[in-house]
């Protein structure tokens, strides 16, 4: 299978390394013979129909320059050329999803399968992209867009086949959970945020995380998968964690409770809001962990806990999608 990767940041490079190391295993175990024919970062696109030398790309990228590669090409050539699948790993943009939506739409309309770990395009127009994929008869997979390597999406889409999901609730942003955990331990919001930034959990501009928009974007994705609700970011009521305050956090603790930034959807209403939950709740996870509780019609409440981010972890989700794609194309319906 020929693949093109756009975005060679933390995730893109981790993916290249995994492909390099585990290529053989993927081939012998799943029949996935992956050939990376194109890569691109913000400045340069490189294409070789015969497959690129991954080690060479990684080395160049480490030195910070792709542009002395001999096989330079245009992004359109990459997307519309001889590839089977586009792997889209550019930065998240929750305003209009650019540039990812443009790349994804172009690929879908050219009949290419698409895999992304980018929640931006999904938050802005997921129902549209799903319909375009269907219309063009291609697969569109995005395991890595929620929860990094933790398979939250598959948890709501696949694991409960045959019964209805009633509601989902969870903590789907690691940064805010880290901050709230530190606040439980007595740190002020500002100090906890600084610490999170130092540890690399929070961005220099932390607003997407602390104001709840990152959680809201992921909620949109989970809700569309669980309920086919057709929602986008506009439909989510969002409130962040800036105004909780230490007094409230300690008051909660005295009452056997704690504040969490909870994302909730039942398919009709969608909200992201700080809420007090019992210290004994399975959703009471610490640090940067994520947790998602799914309530199924028959089998009841179940909770999945995992690391919500990480380059290598997210690359694993992309690989999972590549394997899934291979299985689907081979017409082999095994649930992996």
């Amino acid at each position: 299978m020929k693949a093109v990767i756009i975005g060679l940041g933390t995730v893109g490079r981790a993916l290249l390394r995994e492909v390099q190391e585990r290529g053989h295993e993927l081939k012998s175990k799943y029949g996935l013979n992956l050939k990376v024919v194109g890569v691109a970062d913000s400045k340069t696109a490189v294409y070789n129909e015969e497959g690129l030398n991954i080690a060479e790309i990684l080395k160049m990228k480490e030195r910070g320059i792709l542009n002395d590669h001999p096989n330079r090409a245009s992004l359109t050539e990459l997307i519309k050329g001889g590839t089977d699948v586009l792997v889209e790993l550019t930065p998240t943009n929750l305003k209009d999803g650019m540039p990812a939506v443009r790349y994804i739409r172009e690929a879908l309309s050219a009949g290419k399968h698409v895999i992304t770990a980018n929640k931006g395009p999904l938050a802005v127009e997921m129902p549209a992209l799903m319909e375009l994929a269907e219309y063009n008869g291609v697969h569109f997979l995005f395991s890595g867009a929620v929860g990094g390597g933790t398979p939250f999406i598959r948890f709501v889409s696949r694991c409960l086949l045959g019964e209805r999901v009633i509601r989902i609730r969870g903590i789907i942003n690691g940064t805010t959970n880290y901050i709230l955990t530190r606040m439980e331990e007595g740190l002020s919001f500002e100090k906890a945020l600084k610490e999170a930034q130092k540890l690399g959990y929070a961005e220099a501009d932390p607003s997407a995380d602390v104001d709840g928009w990152d959680s809201a974007a992921k909620l949109v994705i989970l809700s569309n998968v669980a309920f086919q609700s057709g929602v986008t970011l506009r439909d989510v009521e969002v409130e962040g964690i800036r105004d909780i305050g230490l007094e409230n956090v300690s008051d909660a603790l005295r009452n056997g409770e704690t504040y969490k930034l909870i994302a909730y959807s039942d398919g009709e209403s969608h909200l992201v809001k700080p809420q007090r939950i019992s210290l004994k709740s399975p959703l009471n996870v610490k640090g940067a962990l994520n947790a998602l509780q799914v309530e199924a019609e028959i089998s009841g409440k179940q909770t999945l806990v995992g690391k919500g981010a990480g380059g290598r972890e997210t690359a694993a989700a992309v690989i999972r999608d590549l394997v899934e794609l291979k299985v689907r194309l081979a017409g082999d319906g095994r649930c992996l």
């Binding site: 127009e125 129902p127 319909e131 375009l132 057709g230 986008t232």
Partner: peptide, 26 residues
């Protein structure tokens, strides 16, 4: 409004059109 490729008697792609109408016109 996004449609299929049936020029002259095109059918809207309903879910896609809904999203794009909200994002652009709305």
């Amino acid at each position: 409004i996004v449609t299929d490729d049936r020029f002259g008697d095109a059918n809207p792609l309903y879910r896609a059109s809904e999203v794009y109408i909200r994002n652009r016109l709305g």
